[in-house]
Design a protein around this nucleic acid. Structure first.
Length: 491
DNA sequence: GAATTCCCCTG
DNA sequence: CAGGTGATATTG
């Protein structure tokens, strides 16, 4: 432990890290970690424990690197509960995609990851070594351990279930690897006090953090204006939504907590192996891993006046690809209000699982109904599947016939091939770059999509130009999606 | 207020 | 490196 680890950071940003650590600045939470050489423990930069001396710390890029260097996670600040880092964003897209797959599906084999990326395991390992100085297998193991640790802290799940949820074959394997890598046993972790009361319930509750600032009203209102009845409920402090994760129906409630900088999430699901994918999807939906400092400076560099830049802006995600596709097509050239009206009509007419009476009475009664436990878990249903639309008559929709045909054709494409490429999408008549990019921004939540052909965007740019303000959108790279959203929100 | 947790110091 | 000390926040 005495020697400086291979994985320590030693770049020009060191001064910034030092400052962030000293001030316990929440905006840097999860972007790096602090290893304390004297104790062999690593912390989040916001840890409230006594401040270690500078000579005893080393800065680490990620929790994975810290564990790999032989540090164990702090039991006070719990590095497993930090927002995820995007430090490796933009470094290498293949590595990035691999990381996404591994963190969403903790039980996947590295062989299948390579297969899904269309490369050999040998090459995948080489890329990981090159960009992260860690092998894919070790990276996956650290993610499993950290997630298991989080579940042990925050839930009442049995150790066996925790092992399953984290991709370990058995509690024995979990026990072995935890002891080996973080010098803690599962029962030791379970014994430690959590910061959150453990409510006895058959539901699973977790706390998902973000780096402040977070403009909750903006993202909440964005979702509320586009609310899909029978599938999601948005109220003042929370969002409730139903989704599918590999055959399994999952309903969650995410309640914003501004003072704790995160969301209290309650999950209702049929299989514990869906917990991690559900959590990743919620993080995407609410854009919890964004780096607001980098985004704000990117926006400022475009020439957009400070008064018009919304602090803590986030990309409102769409979890389901087909839902994203439908929202995009239905939203072509029309107002948000008109689009969501047609989307609700589509879902209402074709979704066999939907209890139509309850949807209707809710709409008539109060569109912003407060989310109320068990009732919602039963009544909310996932959005339509592609085949529900592909094989249906959609003439009841109020939109140009050409657009209805595009919708059917896209549904057929996705029904036959969920992994259809961008080229496949563009080959569908009526699907152009705007639609594809809209889905990239909202579903894939790519951070660097600028919808320069969007009507509202063009309007906003023109309006600013009239006030002698020129926006250089290219300068917002690699965060142009946030520029798009900022301009939408200004309208 | 007790217990937990961390970090530094000492021998 | 084990064990003691003070510092600090959190929780029941």
């Amino acid at each position: 432990m005495q020697q400086v680890s291979l994985y320590a950071l030693n770049d020009s940003q060191l001064g910034n890290y030092q400052q962030a650590r000293m001030s316990r600045d929440q905006r840097f939470d999860g972007l790096f970690f602090v290893g304390v050489k004297t104790t062999g423990i690593f912390c989040r930069p916001v840890c409230k424990a006594r401040m270690p001396l500078e000579k005893n710390v080393q800065y680490l890029r990620s929790a994975a690197h810290a564990i790999e260097s032989g540090f164990r996670p702090c039991l006070l600040c719990r590095p497993d509960s930090a927002p995820y880092s995007c430090a490796w964003q933009g470094v290498n897209t293949t590595v990035e995609r691999a990381i996404t797959i591994i963190t969403e599906q903790l039980d996947i084999s590295i062989e299948s990851v390579a297969q899904r990326l269309g490369i050999s395991t040998r090459y995948l390992a080489k890329l990981f070594e090159q960009h992260l100085q860690i092998s894919p297998k070790r990276f996956q193991l650290t993610q499993r351990i950290l997630f298991a640790k989080q579940l042990l802290h925050e839930t009442t799940l049995s150790i066996e279930s925790v092992a399953q949820s984290a991709g370990f074959g058995s509690s024995k394997r979990l026990q072995y690897h935890m002891q080996q890598h973080i010098a803690l046993s599962p029962s030791q972790v379970r014994k430690t006090k959590t910061h959150y009361p453990l409510k006895r319930s058959q539901h699973i509750s977790l706390f998902l953090r973000y780096r402040p600032p977070y403009d909750w009203p903006a993202i909440r209102d964005f979702f509320a204006l586009r609310q899909l009845h029978g599938n999601e409920i948005i109220d003042e402090r929370s969002i409730t939504k139903c989704m599918m994760i590999n055959q399994y129906k999952v309903v969650f409630v995410a309640k914003h907590s501004a003072n704790k900088c995160g969301f209290d999430v309650v999950l209702d699901l049929e299989d514990v192996r869906a917990i991690k994918p559900a959590m990743s999807h919620i993080r995407k939906l609410l854009d919890l891993d964004a780096d607001p400092i980098a985004i704000a400076s990117a926006l400022a560099s475009t020439g957009l006046p400070k008064a018009l830049i919304k602090e803590g802006i986030r990309l409102p995600g769409i979890i389901d690809k087909f839902e994203g596709a439908c929202r995009a097509v239905v939203g072509q050239q029309v107002s948000v209000k008109a689009a969501i009206g047609q989307l609700n009509l589509l879902n209402f007419m074709l979704n066999k699982r939907l209890d139509k009476e309850s949807v209707q009475s809710k709409r008539a009664h109060n569109p912003a109904l407060a989310s109320d436990s068990a009732v919602e878990f039963a009544s909310l249903q996932p959005f339509l599947r592609p085949n529900d639309v592909a094989n249906a008559d959609v003439s009841f929709l109020k939109m140009p016939n050409a657009r209805k045909q595009s919708l059917s054709a896209l549904a057929t494409l996705l029904g036959n091939n969920p992994q259809a490429t961008e080229e496949d999408w563009l080959a569908v008549k009526g699907i152009g770059p705007w639609t594809v990019n809209y889905v990239k921004l909202r579903h894939a939540t790519l951070p660097d999509v600028f919808l320069h052909t969007d009507l509202i965007i063009k309007q906003q740019i023109k309006k600013l130009a009239n006030d002698n303000i020129d926006i250089h959108s290219a300068l917002a790279a690699p965060y142009r999606s946030y520029l798009t959203l900022n301009l939408w929100n200004n309208s």
